[in-house]
Amino acid sequence: MAKILIADDEPHILLGLEYLLQQKGHELRTASDGSEVRIQLPSFKPDLVILDVMMPPTGVDEGFSACRWIKQNEATRDTPVIILTVKAQESDRQKADECGADAYLTKPIDREALFRTIGNLIGV
């Protein structure tokens, strides 16, 4: 199964996603802000990263900048990134494209859509 890193500042959402994906047999790590993502990535070496957008420390486009960071970093460039956010405007989708996100999902999450997207990205 795959190693997945999820970042979200809402503890309940983090808890729910963690449980859901663990049930599927994935190995999970969680982060509650952008800097934790950057710290955990090198050691954990996940197969997939799921990022919320509005998180500390900037509170604005933190998910996008973390995604950009992943895609610019030699070691993590090939790790697929899913942006998972409440933002549903076209401009936000464009921003996600620009920073190299592989998929864009909006909250509230549809369980099946999430599984399907993960399957498409890492073939599990």
Binding site: H12, G16, L20, V86, R111
Partner: peptide, 15 residues
Amino acid sequence: HELKTPVTSIKLFAQ
């Protein structure tokens, strides 16, 4: 956005 956040949790845990 604010309203979507609790709904996200509710839907997630309901499922």
